[in-house]
Design a binder for these strands. Sequence first.
DNA 1: CGTCCAATCTTGGTCGAACCAAGAGTATAT
DNA 2: ATATACTCTTGGTTCGACCAAGATTGGACG
Lengths: 141, 141
Amino acid sequence: MNEAPARLRRKPSWLINRASARAHRLIKETMAAAGGHAYHFAILAALDEFGPNSQVQIGQRCGIDQSDMHTMLNELVEQGHVARAPDPADRRRNLVTLTAAGRRRLEDLDTTLTRVQHDILDALSATERDTLTGLLTRILG
Amino acid sequence: MNEAPARLRRKPSWLINRASARAHRLIKETMAAAGGHAYHFAILAALDEFGPNSQVQIGQRCGIDQSDMHTMLNELVEQGHVARAPDPADRRRNLVTLTAAGRRRLEDLDTTLTRVQHDILDALSATERDTLTGLLTRILG
DNA sequence: CGTCCAATCTTGGTCGAACCAAGAGTATAT
DNA sequence: ATATACTCTTGGTTCGACCAAGATTGGACG
């Protein structure tokens, strides 16, 4: 691609969108090659950190819509990485729990995705990566 | 939304995607309210900075696909902000030129979008905004 | 108890951005 | 002259994000 107009290059929103598109594409390809989906990692991480939970609550943690959650859980159950069973304490809910295979899967995906971060942030030093992470965290706060 | 899992919060790609989603939503709403599209600004800016040009070349500048370019130009022509005429020097091409109204429109959109940047980066100081812009520019380089 | 409202899951959509492919017309090289 | 390359147009597909309605269950309150 040729150089973009200066007015555009100076807009943070444009830079963020471009960076997001590039990162998203890389992550998507990587996860597809691993037989998964970016959302899988988020869900497994939430279960690992917060314990068994209902579908909506996992969704709220990760910013995933209920209906998309449903699809993703179908896949994760299919792969044996999570178990989904009616919550005996509240039978409206499904209690989603991490299986042993799911915990291993989480670690695998974590190392894979951490590696991808390095590719994305290739041009930055370790300190700069921390700075970027900090700034992004703050604008999301 | 509840707090996201730490493993997720630490991934720059996740932060970038979230920030992009938020920014993109804001921009989209703002441009829709102004009767436009985010791409309109990019196209007008490219014409202003690089002069009349063919559709593919504008697209390469701004990272817009040919077919999307076609749609966007239909809208901009309709609004009277650009003119599209066959290039006499190469009749495969359409020469797209900025009209006087288009130049005014560009300035309007620029001030509007600059204001939106402030909303997006509300939590950051001016120096930090420059830092963020610089880091993002480098990872895109 | 019965009634009404709220929460959850499931299902089946919509919408927009990004991308891809084929065809028609035009230019260029050999 | 012919083959190749370029441009625009048209008509798609894919995917993430989002929305809505129905069925089931829980809880509140008369």
